[in-house]
Simulated assay, not measured.
Amino acid sequence: MPPSLYHLLVDAHGLPLNVLISGANRHDSMLVEPILDSMPAIKRGGRGQTRRRPVKLHGDEGYDNPRVRRSLRRRGITARLARIGP
C-alpha cells in the first residue's frame, strides 16, 4: 500500500469536522478547497443557522501560497497561516 496523508479539519477544541486521505506525494495546499467544500453543516447549540464554513482557518507554512489565500478570501474565511521563511 502506498504512503498516505490524513488531512484533518478540526474546530477550536480539536473536534474533527472533516477528514480527507490523499497520497503522500500530494502537496498539503492542494486539499484546502476539497476539504472545505465537503465539510458537513455544523449545528451550534441554541438558535441560528447552521455553519457551512469556518470563520478563520489556521494552518502551517505548507498552506502559505497565493492560491490558498485567494480561495479563502473568496469564501470569506480569515487566513491565519504561518509564513514561509524567517
Rank of each mutant, 00 (worst) to 15 (best):
M1Q: 07
M1Y: 04
P2C: 06
L5H: 12
L5E: 04
Y6C: 04
H7G: 09
V10F: 02
D11P: 05
D11L: 08
H13C: 11
H13R: 08
G14T: 09
P16L: 09
P16N: 12
L17H: 06
L17T: 04
L17V: 06
N18L: 03
N18A: 11
N18W: 00
V19K: 00
V19I: 14
L20A: 09
L20V: 01
S22P: 01
G23H: 08
A24C: 10
A24R: 02
N25I: 02
R26N: 11
R26L: 14
R26C: 11
R26V: 14
R26S: 10
H27T: 15
D28C: 02
D28T: 03
D28S: 02
D28R: 01
D28E: 13
D28H: 03
S29E: 11
S29N: 14
L31W: 12
L31G: 01
V32M: 11
V32G: 07
E33I: 11
E33G: 06
E33V: 13
P34G: 11
P34H: 05
L36T: 07
L36N: 07
D37L: 08
S38L: 06
M39D: 00
P40Y: 00
A41Y: 00
I42N: 00
I42D: 01
R47W: 03
R47E: 12
R47I: 02
G48T: 03
G48D: 07
G48P: 02
G48C: 07
Q49C: 07
T50Y: 01
R52S: 13
R53T: 10
R53F: 12
P54T: 04
P54V: 03
V55S: 09
V55R: 05
K56D: 12
K56A: 12
K56M: 09
L57R: 04
L57A: 12
H58E: 05
G59Y: 03
G59W: 05
E61K: 10
E61V: 00
Y63N: 04
Y63K: 01
Y63T: 03
Y63H: 04
D64I: 06
V68S: 05
R69C: 12
R69F: 05
R69N: 09
R70M: 12
R70H: 12
S71C: 14
R73I: 10
R73A: 15
R73H: 14
R74F: 06
I77N: 09
I77G: 07
T78V: 15
T78E: 15
T78R: 09
T78A: 14
A79D: 15
R80Y: 11
L81I: 15
A82C: 09
A82M: 08
A82G: 03
R83N: 13
I84R: 15
I84Y: 05
G85I: 07
P86G: 10
